[in-house]
Design a protein around this nucleic acid. Structure first.
Length: 112
DNA sequence: TAATTGACCCTTT
DNA sequence: CAAAGGGCCAATT
C-alpha cells in the first residue's frame, strides 16, 4: 500500500515537461513535502513501471545525475535526456533546462 | 527498540 | 570550483 506522499510525488513528477528537469528538493516542495528530498528518491525507486513516470527528468540540486557516473542507470538517464534536447555541460545539465512551473496551473493540476 | 541506509540538500571551507 | 560536515526522515535490518 503506497502512502499519500508517494502518490503526490508521482503526480508532481508526471507534470515535468519533456526537455526540462527538476531537482529532488524542488519536487518535494511542489508536492507539499518541504525538506523531504530523500523521500522523493524513495518514491521514485518504488514507483511502478506502469506509472510511466518521467523519472529521468529528476536530478540533484547541483544538476548532476543522482546515479554513479558510468552506471547503467546513469547512462540510460543521460540518453533519455539527450533525446529530449537537454544540453549537458560535463556531467551536469545546462542551467536553462530547469523546470520553472507556473504555480497556479500546477496547484490546480495537483488538486490542492 | 536501536542502528543503518539512501535515486538528497544546504552552508561553509 | 570541489570537498566536507551536518541535517533530514521513511524504510529496512
Amino acid at each position: 500500500m503506497s502512502s499519500r506522499s508517494h502518490l503526490q510525488i508521482w503526480h508532481t513528477v508526471s507534470q515535468i515537461p519533456a526537455g526540462k528537469v527538476a531537482s529532488y528538493g524542488q519536487i518535494a516542495d511542489l508536492a507539499g513535502l518541504p525538506g523531504r528530498a530523500r523521500l522523493v528518491g524513495k518514491a521514485l525507486q518504488l514507483a511502478p513501471a506502469s506509472a510511466l513516470l518521467p523519472w529521468h527528468r529528476v536530478l540533484r540540486s547541483d544538476r548532476g545525475l543522482a546515479f554513479a557516473a558510468g552506471s547503467a542507470q546513469a547512462l540510460t538517464q543521460r540518453q533519455l535526456l539527450l533525446a529530449e534536447g537537454v544540453i549537458f555541460k560535463g556531467n551536469k545539465v545546462s542551467a536553462d533546462a530547469m523546470w520553472r512551473p507556473d504555480l497556479a496551473a500546477l496547484l490546480f493540476e495537483l488538486q490542492y
